[in-house]
Design a protein around this nucleic acid. Structure first.
Length: 666
RNA sequence: GCCACCUUAGCUCAGUAGGUAGAGCGACGCUCUCGUAAAGCGUAGGUCACCGGUUCGAUUCCGGUAGGUGGCUCCA
């Protein structure tokens, strides 16, 4: 008996092989082939191939191959956990970006020492080269075999409804229910798990891995469920790639905005003020001011009107806007003022509750409705750097990117339904152009649609709003990702996701359509025919929060801001003290051109001054000694260490001024 | 909010198996006046996060609080 298979390689060829031939027979020599695609479906290498099959190897470094590697590594981790803790119950263990996790119900916490012990155990399992064997089972058989695994039993029961989002699809997918056994070379079964597969042929196919951290995780991602312990790991096709990954993580840690913030003396979070409430030091505040100033200028050019509103308000405003219905948990509790009590403590005059505002829109609405509005005024674009306060849960506060007090570059655009689409198109262009000026240029869009359980309004209106946003997003030509159920309660939104210098994505701008708040606030304008009409409202913030955007830029540039944003643009460094006066003169000329320049007149040696300026990531060092003074020149030292000696003063000034004006990175 | 871990000088970190602490950098002072990433010497600086408990004695052990880190859930 023989069968014919078509091997998809660099050169496609048909081969006649014996019946019963497996992927391992074809590819077993090559450890970089972890599975095969049989007629388009990924299968384990140990399975016999059907006659006439088209067989394509799955390489360990391919996206599918990496997932298989990492998911197999998750199994090894789970076996290690159960080897050391018989009582541990299995949750799920899918591959994720760069690695995998596995959830367990286990009383004993995964401490850093425990991770080390587990890694050792995993190495032992890998050394044993245990085969992964696939076995099809009925629901009943699976229930019997996994009687001790309550979470797996739940997955068996729910397999029809298993969705990809909670990772359970890795355990039970569509089709047959399967168990993967780990079998030692002497044939003895080491471990097994309910799993859809596929897997690498044996544990020896895992070349490099590390356990990275542990955490708590709710079963199936739901806060109402039991909390499990999650073990995170990473796995790579080679030791070098693992090392590269670890280096990348270390590099990312070096540009952490919280670390750079204190190293560069930009901002801090004094305990005395409270969690998530930053103060900006002079250099940080200067960068922030530059960011704001340029944004203001662009908003003026784009036809925005500037407004300004208070930080606190009577609670009634947020009753009108429904925020107190929906997001009271996210607000600081009220301040009760003007309440009077008698000696017994009985209230004789009720007080009024004031709230710190978590959003600016209700106040902007009041400006809109402060007088009658004509259709001729629309679109009316009200802009404000509005400070808001949100009582973020203690565990989520994170540097500048998730603070409790921050300032939004917030605007609300009131327009007619007819104007809506053009306005959104214009707005999206404006957003992307502005972000580019700050040095971000790699974007994609996300469209967040309605969550029926957390929203107000009727289906038809939601549908229209969602469709309009989708059309505008498509027209931009950018990649569009769906985010079902991610909308705000009052309307759908587009958010702009930007990639930074090391490839991480950040959600920045949001553009939200709102058909409901205008109704809640009875906003109206007089149309051309004299009728009263309700405007459509667009909420938009480009930076999101200035503080957060600051943090993103700080990490994007690793602290080395482009000249126009750098708090100190030029440091003058005399070769010796006697040249300080000469540099002071140069600095004076630069200052006259608006350049932020300092001359380092400390009694450090020149080398130390260079080191200091370098560590502060100052874009230009101007060094001057006898040669320069004699020639009426200065010597440049750039951040990359390059130098340019003997540049005439006027030329040097022009170079710097031009780099600032062009907003370039140097 | 939940789980784990952490908090010692301005910063980075040692240390004390319970007897109130040390380095480097930084700051300040003096000497040096120097050509592309750290000159030399000296001085000051700490209720060992805070509050309780155990103890003759707590920075160290226990409990609580605050702040932080990594995740989870959340993010108008």
């Amino acid at each position: 008996m023989s069968i014919t298979v078509t091997l998809v390689r660099s050169d496609t060829l048909r081969e006649v092989v014996a019946d019963g031939t497996t992927g391992l027979d074809l590819f077993g020599e090559d450890r970089t082939i972890v599975a095969c695609r049989v007629n388009g479906e990924i299968k384990d290498l140990h399975l016999p191939l059907p006659d006439g099959a088209t067989v394509e190897p799955v390489l360990i470094g391919s996206p599918d191959g990496l997932n298989i590697l990492r998911h197999s590594c998750a199994h090894v981790a789970a076996q290690a956990v159960q080897n050391l803790h018989e009582e541990a119950k299995l949750g799920i263990g899918p591959p994720i970006t760069d690695g995998f996790y596995y959830d367990f119900m286990l009383d004993e916490p995964f401490t850093p020492e425990a991770l080390k012990a587990l890694e050792k155990q995993m190495q032992r399992i890998i050394k044993e080269k245990q085969s992964f064997r696939r076995r099809v089972v009925t629901d009943e058989e699976a229930r019997v075999e996994l009687a001790d695994e309550p979470f797996k039993l739940e997955l068996i029961t729910d397999k029809g409804s298993a969705n990809a989002e909670d990772g359970s699809s890795m355990e039970v997918g569509a089709g047959d229910l399967t168990i993967y056994e780990n079998v030692r070379r002497n044939g003895e079964r080491a471990w097994e798990d309910l799993c859809r597969g596929p897997h690498v042929p044996h544990t020896g196919y895992i070349p490099a891995f590390a356990l990275t951290r542990s955490s708590a995780a709710y079963w199936r991602g739901d806060q109402k469920n039991q909390q499990l312990q999650r073990l995170y790991g990473t796995a790579w096709p080679s030791r070098d790639e693992l090392k590269d990954y670890q280096t990348r993580m270390a590099e990312a840690a070096k540009r952490d905005h919280r670390k750079l913030g204190s190293e560069l003396d930009l901002f801090s979070f004094p305990d005395e003020i409270g969690s998530g409430l930053p103060v900006f030091h002079p250099k940080g505040a200067l960068i922030k001011m530059q960011m704001e100033n340029y944004s203001r200028q662009r908003h003026l050019e784009a036809g925005y009107s500037f407004v300004s509103t208070p930080h606190i308000t009577k609670g009634h405003l947020f009753e009108t806007s429904k925020h107190l219905d929906w997001y009271a948990d996210g607000m600081y509790p009220p301040m009760r003022v003007d309440e009077e009590r008698d000696e017994d403590g009985t209230v004789v005059k009720p007080g009024v509750d004031y709230y710190l505002k978590p959003m600016n829109c209700p106040m902007h609405n009041l400006i809109f409705s402060s007088r009658g509005r004509s259709y001729r005024e629309l679109p009316l674009r009200l802009f404000e750097f509005g400070s808001v306060y949100r009582y973020e849960k203690s565990g989520v506060v994170h540097g500048l990117t998730r603070a409790r007090g921050f300032t939004q570059d917030d605007a609300h655009i009131y327009c007619t339904r007819e104007q809506m689409k053009d306005e959104l198109t214009r707005l999206l262009t404006f957003v992307l152009d502005l972000l580019k000026d700050y040095g971000l240029d790699d974007f994609y869009l996300e469209l967040s649609t309605r969550d029926p359980e957390k929203s107000v309004g009727d289906d038809a209106t939601w549908e229209e709003a969602t469709r309009t946003l989708a059309e505008v997003a498509h027209a931009s030509g950018l990649e569009l990702v769906d985010d079902p159920g991610g909308a705000a309660f009052y309307g759908p939104k587009i958010s702009v996701q930007a990639k930074d210098a090391i490839g991480r994505t950040w959600q920045l701008s949001t553009i939200q359509l709102d058909f409901f708040e205008p109704g809640l606030f009875n906003l109206e304008y007089t149309a051309a025919d004299g009728s009263r009409q309700q405007p459509v409202m667009i909420h938009r913030a480009l930076f999101g929060s200035i503080e957060r955007f600051f943090g993103v830029l700080l990490e994007h540039y690793a602290g080395a801001f482009p000249v126009w944003l750098a708090p100190v643009q030029v440091v003058g460094i005399p070769v010796a003290g006697e040249f300080t006066g000469y540099l002071d003169e140069v600095a004076e000329k630069l200052r006259a051109r608006g350049v932020r320049v300092e001359v380092d007149s400390s009694d450090d040696r020149m080398q130390k001054k260079i080191r200091n300026a370098q560590k502060q990531k100052v874009p230009y060092m101007l060094i001057a000694g006898g040669d320069d003074r004699a020639a009426g020149a200065v010597s440049f030292r750039y951040r990359d260490g390059e130098q340019k000696n003997g540049v005439p003063i006027d030329e040097a000034i022009e170079e710097i001024v031009e780099a600032i004006a062009r907003k370039v990175q140097v």
